Amino acid sequence: MEEALIKEIVKRVMDRVDYNMTIPIEASARHVHLSQNHMEKLFGKEYKMSKKKDLSQPGQFQYKERVTLIGPKGVIKGVAILGPAREKTQVEISKTDARILGIDPPIRESGKLKDSDSLFIMAGKVVIEAKESVIIAKRHIHMTPRDAEKFAITDKQLVKIRVKSERPIVFEDVLVRVSSRYKLSMHIDFDEANAADYKEGIFGEIILQSISMD
């Protein structure tokens, strides 16, 4: 009995985490970043987009308007549009979404769209083709330079993250992106979130640092 109690105490001590060294985790649903040109084609030049809510990253927000994604094998309706407008349209989906649509987008860092997949985007009765626009977003961490100094990490570094949840999991090759414009947060897609039994408020900790991607 005493031995079992000691083991339980030791386990609890070992499980304790320094919350100053943890990273909040957010699950990112499928979404679209439209270029100004595509936004005007879909909704009209005079149309004023309506902001729904701010997102966790400073300066990022979601519009009330939604679009439909159309692929060779299927469609996905009600897809969120995030702002502000980008230079080039980018569609971020999960592997499960890709199978529904019948496409095979690469796993990429945001903004790296060369030779990515294509699909059609519809709003109302208007349909446009978004060429080289679709990726599965590489799991990544946003952090400020101050955060990077605290974690002893540099921009573009790859790390391993242990997710603290009821279904603990370790994610490898997590890209770190450092900028003064960011707020500390790790982003995963819904396939990854389901694997980790994601619930709002979970966090992760760095368990191994790797080399920079550059």
Results as ranks from 00 to 15, higher is better:
Ala98Ile: 15
Asp54Gln: 11
Ser133Pro: 08
Arg30Cys: 05
Asp104Ser: 14
Leu34Thr: 00
His187Asn: 11
Gly83Gln: 07
Ile211Asn: 15
Val178Lys: 01
Pro105His: 07
Lys52Ser: 06
Ile121Val: 15
Asp155Gly: 10
Leu175Ala: 10
Pro105Gln: 12
Met213His: 10
Asp54Ser: 14
Val163Trp: 13
Lys77Gln: 14
Lys51Ser: 02
Ala130Val: 00
His33Leu: 00
Ser118Lys: 06
Arg16Cys: 10
Ile206Gly: 11
Lys53His: 02
Ala85Cys: 13
Val17His: 03
Val32Trp: 09
Lys150Thr: 11
Glu149Cys: 11
Ala196Thr: 05
Phe203Pro: 05
Arg86Pro: 03
Arg86Thr: 02
Ser50Tyr: 03
Ile93Thr: 04
Lys131His: 05
Leu34Ala: 07
Glu46Val: 01
Pro58His: 05
Arg16Met: 07
Ala27Leu: 03
Pro84Gly: 01
Gln57Trp: 00
Leu208Trp: 07
Lys73Pro: 04
Ile136Thr: 10
Val10Pro: 00
Arg30Pro: 02
Met213Glu: 12
Ala152Ile: 07
Asp214Glu: 15
Ala148Tyr: 14
Ser212Asn: 13
Phe43Ser: 02
Asn20Phe: 05
Met1Pro: 01
Leu119Asn: 02
Gly204Ser: 04
Ile70Lys: 13
Pro84Phe: 12
Thr22Ile: 15
Asp104Glu: 15
Ala85Val: 15
Ile161Met: 14
Glu149Thr: 06
Gln36Val: 04
Gln60Asn: 12
Ala193Lys: 10
Ser133Arg: 09
Ile103Ala: 14
Thr96Cys: 02
Lys138Gln: 08
Asp147Ala: 04
Phe43Gly: 04
Pro145Thr: 13
Leu34Phe: 09
Ile25Gln: 04
Arg99Phe: 01
Lys52Ile: 00
Ile93His: 00
Ile169Glu: 10
Lys156Arg: 15
Arg139Asn: 07
Ser94Ala: 09
Thr144Lys: 04
Ile93Gly: 06
Gly201Asp: 08
Lys150Leu: 14
Arg139Trp: 06
Pro145Met: 08
Tyr47Arg: 03
His142Val: 05
Pro58Val: 06
Arg139Met: 02
Arg16Ala: 08
Val32Tyr: 06
Thr68Ser: 15
Ala98Ser: 15
Val17Ala: 02
Arg167Asp: 05
Ser50Phe: 01
Arg86Gln: 04
